[in-house]
Design a protein around this nucleic acid. Structure first.
Lengths: 221, 221
DNA sequence: TAAGAGGTACCACCAAAGGGGTAATTCCAG
DNA sequence: CTGGAATTACCCCTTTGGTGGTACCTCTTA
């Protein structure tokens, strides 16, 4: 990949995908102030955007989240499925936690808010073109909360479990069958079954698979 | 909880837990410049820290990560287990991703780096005392990466699977037994078993539990 | 047309998981 | 000291899961 796009080399090519023509115009004019950046294509919807990405192979794609029919997250997934390896920066008004998390999990290389200062946007786009992940500062707290919220407010309650039961949950979540758990803990398989039986009751789950899924999601390890 | 600690009310009480006496002295002197903040106790290790927290019930605990014997994360867990509901802000030199993520998952209300400007620290501590989560700006990118890293570079390969098999994996990862999967897909349980048999071979896994764990970690949904 | 992949369905067999019960030990708290 | 929780172990039993095999149908591709 060509990451010599700043300095003296050719400017970084950018594809704008946004259903709002006025905003595209504004962003384009702004970007043209910077000789290191160049808008090579625009699109107003997901399908055109994917096509344009495949045609121009831009260094950077600036992607709006809020679009009719196919939203930005879906568009991002489509791009990745089509093999587009451009850096994709989400550019949107939404500071909604779900959007941010979904975008990042879908493989976004950045998430910028539309209310940022123009100079700051240029700054961030240049950084992004160089391969840096760019995130609006305002989202820091939100990201931190997203990380820890995975641990809070879930279904079953771990507090009612005995130490032995928690230990066995970890081994179940590691994919071990009862026989191996027994060997590892130097107890009989029958005893392991007893513990499993008890923890299933306490957690109100129906099988060790549900236990494993729950434990993994809960980050129990 | 009393979150009237700024303005005219009594200053926010702070407990320092750090094994470095000089640093405690420095931070304390800094904090005393701010009439809204007050250091009410100090501790140089985890046990003393927990004891001090229980005794003084401070509004805010400033916690170092790098301590001998019992580290900051463990200390944080101990505090929570003892029922301490003070806001806990981690204050450390480590900008290591694992530390940040571990601290947040353990329930930290903030994560500040020791190299920050003194005024900035006071600023952040005041925010923290008011209930806001405070994170050093420098960690934004790191947090974003932590969120998406869950999705990259793992063992088995999903690409060899047929659409039907992927569909069944999702249902396994939802904790469903074969019988329910069959009902949901309107096929027989025997057929589901065939698919499960095939995908286990392809993924080189030994049981549906391993499939479920893998799928959840991989974010397949 | 033939070959292969994918999906469906059935069979039999054995291993694993889960539910019920009883019971011994230890250790802690009322 | 007595009762309960926790851990261990055993029993029997049913359900679920996983493996091997054969078979038929549809589509796509060589």
């Amino acid at each position: 990949m060509n990451d010599m796009s700043s300095e003296q080399g050719s400017p970084a090519s950018i594809l704008l995908i946004d259903d709002h023509p006025l905003l595209r115009k504004g962003v384009k004019q702004l970007i043209e102030l910077d000789t290191d950046l160049e808008v090579v294509a625009e699109a107003s919807n997901a399908n055109d955007g994917v096509a344009a990405a495949l045609e121009h192979e831009p260094d950077l794609i600036l992607l709006d989240l809020n679009m009719p029919e196919i939203n930005g997250i879906e568009t991002l997934k489509m791009l990745r499925e089509e093999g587009v390896d451009s850096r994709v920066v989400v550019f949107t008004v939404s500071d909604n936690e779900e959007d941010v998390v979904a975008a990042l999990k879908a493989g976004a290389d950045g998430y910028l808010l539309k209310d940022m200062e123009p100079e700051e946007l240029l700054n961030n786009l240049n950084q992004a073109a160089l391969g840096k992940m760019v995130i609006s500062d305002r989202l820091t707290t939100l990201l931190a909360q997203a990380l820890q919220s995975k641990r809070t407010a879930k279904g079953p309650d771990i507090s009612s479990l005995t130490p032995r039961e928690r230990q066995i949950i970890k081994l179940i979540a590691a994919g071990l069958p009862n026989k191996l758990i027994a060997r590892k803990l130097s107890i009989t398989e029958g005893t392991v079954k007893v513990h499993v039986k008890h923890l299933l009751k306490k957690l109100n789950l129906r099988s060790r698979v549900e236990v494993a899924v729950w434990a993994v999601q809960e980050g129990i390890k």
